Simulated assay, not measured.
Amino acid sequence: MNVDFSAGPLTAKLWDRVRPIIEEIEALPFLAQLADGSLDARAFVNYISQDSLYLNGYAKAMSFLAAKTVDRDESRFWAGSAAEAITVEEGMHEELLADSRLANALTELNDEGSRFKASPTTLGYVSFLIATAASRSYGEGVAGVLPCFWVYAHMGKVLVEQAGQMSEDHPYRTWVQTYDSPGFDESTRHAVQILEQELAKAPNEEATRMRAAFEQACVYELHFWASAHAMQNWDASVFLPQDATV
């Protein structure tokens, strides 16, 4: 699936640069199972819970960008996107509780104390985004937050195509369809256009750092999907020999 969200030659080249990472995301079992409805409800609820935590941090990163830019339209865009991220989070909780299959899985995770604890990947991704937006140049901050727009918009098209005609009882039907959103596509194109402009005027060294931030965030996108499916947590025993004692 190839939908062109690039805004010019620089962002087109950047997308080509991360194409191997995107192909790894497209091949994740999590997404194939999400599309065909076979994904375990616990894995989906875990993903939603991690995404809720992520979106809080993502909104903070965009708030830094809104404060940092001298362009009023761009400031409004980032501030509006930050507010939208919080709205999405609230909608997630309502949707989870509306479906008994997901609500039961949510209850199980709550009972285990697994919900609303950021996984190592979630914490790493959020920390990277906030630190980049707060302490690096505006262009680097834009490059860091952009993959969440671009990868999700791209994967929305991939998911809808993979899912095909979903039955009424498909557990993730509504969720899959929300990925393919004209409004989100428009926001993605706006964000990509900002990065195209920033890359065009950036000195070579800064442009290199911007490309590195974009690529790092794409890697985090890959690991975010995969770690949520694997129910990643802070259990250190996975790093120890099986017969080791602590």
Rank of each mutant, 00 (worst) to 15 (best):
A41H: 12
W225P: 02
D36S: 05
G156E: 06
F128H: 13
Y58Q: 09
A98S: 14
A98K: 12
L96I: 15
T188Y: 01
D36V: 10
L240H: 05
S167P: 10
K13T: 09
H170E: 05
A228D: 01
S114R: 15
E168Y: 10
D235K: 10
S127T: 15
R173D: 05
D16I: 09
S181N: 07
Q216Y: 08
L14E: 08
S38Y: 11
F239S: 10
M210E: 08
A66M: 07
V192D: 02
E168F: 09
N233K: 12
A82Y: 00
A61V: 05
A134N: 09
L14V: 08
I48F: 01
L106I: 06
G156Q: 03
M62D: 06
D111E: 15
S49F: 14
S81C: 14
V145E: 01
F239H: 11
V158L: 13
Q50R: 06
G8L: 05
A35R: 04
S127D: 13
V70P: 03
Y54L: 02
V238M: 07
A163E: 03
S167G: 14
A217Y: 04
T208S: 11
T69Y: 00
A66W: 03
G124Q: 10
Y172G: 03
R211G: 06
L222G: 01
V238T: 08
D169V: 09
A59E: 01
V145D: 00
C218E: 04
A41C: 06
L31E: 05
L146E: 04
N56T: 04
P147Y: 04
E196I: 00
A200M: 02
S63G: 13
L240S: 07
M92Y: 15
G80P: 08
E206S: 06
M166H: 05
F184W: 11
R76D: 12
